[in-house]
Design a binder for these strands. Structure first.
Lengths: 335, 335
DNA sequence: TTGTAAGCGTTATCAG
DNA sequence: CTGATAACGCTTACAA
């Protein structure tokens, strides 16, 4: 393994000079710089990141902490975040909780020891924030940059960059109202949990704005998460109970796909009998039949803001505690 | 930041002893060990991974190199790999190529410098392997563990753990033949590329086994990758040309969803007029209507084998150059 | 503009 | 079974 000393020797300079050249310092004579660069080149020198990080006292990776990286917009989020971090020479390390709360504790506890520079929280089910707070503070105190990129956690002192779920759900409901729908169900509440609360609230508030009552039987809980299966099950159950619905606002595209399947299986037509909207803007939504109208989440924008936040944080600059990314409605044939 | 010396001081031992205790060495008196553990506990000691890695000369993360982490089975793969690596205290860092070949070169070149312990290649479009080979060898020579987890690359001296695509495609074709289909198209060849070649071959061989001819017009190229849009486009184009087909074997679930959409849009029924199979076993496939019959890939098994491979590799034990994971057919209503 | 030298926190070697 | 000590490769005061 060739190191700075080898390069220094070959270039007839000191290791300090080599280091200066390689870290792009300007305080080096052009001529010297050239010599060093040539020597490094010739020897195939590659800096050792551990030594550098050890010396500098900080690492070069950010952990993306997800509940379930497999579903919803998380794969897209991971992709965009990685791309953004790469711009500032940081790595994205993946940490999937699999919905085990204690693993988050573990993560928070060992963030410094793992040499992480920051933590992007993208787990949808951070429930017990109160008990987590001390750990978060401890990590933050040690210089770990902590940002929530899925839930609004600014109330707990954690900066948050999130999609404007409230507005998104509102847009869906308003679109359905404009289409003449009145019995607009909400699919995807997780009762007793903050998860998806904003979306559920968006549905509620939009109905109230329109002067419509909130019918509790039209708010459907999912316990198994935002996946197709839950959508299918809850929609089926509602239909079996003979509920009257003419539209469903689903909290995710996957839930929506399950809902549509259930409706079709019950002999109903979409959107003829029941219109359905999704949430997320997943790519295959356009190839469901009927094609899924959905609230498209601008994940690329979110990822960029996350990078900007990180840069500001590292520079010690001020940054807003909450950024909301505005989603947009995509109208397709399911509504 | 509390370090080994602090712990040593508090426990009245040397840093060496602390290190021994913390790395679980048995050559320490139980009593001494207890003192050290207590001191570490009391001080809230956390080992510094950079120092450790620097000293040990190797890191603790594996990079997952994908072409596009957003689609297909890659999110699932990432999830399972992370879980497996966690078992052996390794991190998974994400590196998404976005289908830019030169970024792979870069990755290979800087793997050591980034302190990576290994590289899992999961990019479907590693085309120019010949030119990449020297870089791979160089990295391998430096002790980087390199494993392909999507393409068969054992011919290039790269150990590979892959799904048995040949068998999978064969199972799909045989299933369709058993259902009486004869004009079985293959959707998803990328002409002039090794990508998906095994699947395409599986289709071909299964037809030949059944004594059926290969009709070139029934092999559909996709240039835009294995996504829904391409499936829709190619299927539409074929139908517009008036081609007779009674079944489509798609190289991915996303392609299949596009194909089904195109068929329905052309007024055809699935599976009445045309049966369709997917590839992957994506979770929402069961909620398409008709529900998608597919070749289910056992990603969890693949991930486990990958971990086992890594352990063997590190232990210097022998390990097979090629492991094939057997997929299974899931029959739903699209066939 | 460049060199010297002192660490960063850990582990491995060698004595004891 | 334990301690002293020398690295690992890099950056950064401080000197020159």
């Amino acid at each position: 393994m060739v190191n700075v000393l080898d390069v220094a020797e070959r270039a007839n300079v000191s290791s300090a000079t080599v280091s200066r050249v390689l870290s792009g310092s300007t305080l080096v004579r052009a001529e010297t710089r050239a010599k060093v660069v040539a020597a490094a080149e010739a020897l195939g020198y590659e800096p050792n990141s551990f030594a550098r990080n050890l010396r500098k006292g900080r690492g070069s990776s950010i952990a993306l902490v997800t509940g379930d990286i497999e579903h919803g917009i998380y794969p897209r989020l991971a992709k965009h975040l990685q791309r953004e971090l790469e711009l500032i020479n940081l790595n994205l390390v993946l940490f999937n909780l699999g919905h085990r709360q204690e693993r988050l504790r573990h993560m928070l506890q060992h963030a410094t020891s793992m040499g992480l520079r920051g933590l992007f929280l993208a787990s949808a089910d951070i429930a017990d924030m109160a008990s987590l707070k001390p750990l978060v503070d401890r990590a933050a105190g040690k210089g770990i940059a902590i940002l929530s990129v899925s839930q609004r956690l600014e109330g707990f002192g954690i900066d948050s960059i999130v999609h404007d779920d409230l507005a998104g759900a509102g847009m869906a409901v308003e679109h359905l109202l404009a289409r003449g729908r009145r019995a607009i169900a909400y699919l995807g509440r997780i009762s007793g949990s903050e998860v998806g609360r904003e979306r559920s609230l968006g549905h509620e508030q939009a109905l109230l704005r329109a002067g419509l009552p909130i019918d509790p039987v039209l708010v459907w809980d999912v316990r198994e998460g935002f996946r197709s299966e839950a959508g299918y099950r809850m929609t089926s159950a509602a239909l079996d109970r003979g509920l009257h619905v003419d539209a469903i606002v689903a909290a995710s595209d996957e839930l929506a796909s399950g809902a549509i399947a259930a409706l079709l299986d019950h002999g109903l037509s979409v959107p003829g009998d029941v219109a359905v909207t999704g949430f997320g803007g997943i790519s295959w939504g356009n190839y469901l039949r009927p094609a899924l109208s959905t609230i498209d989440l601008d994940v690329a924008a979110l990822a960029e803001r996350a990078r900007l936040w990180l840069e500001a944080h590292e520079a010690g600059e001020a940054h807003p505690a909450l950024v909301m990314i505005r989603p947009s409605l995509i109208v397709r044939s399911s509504t």
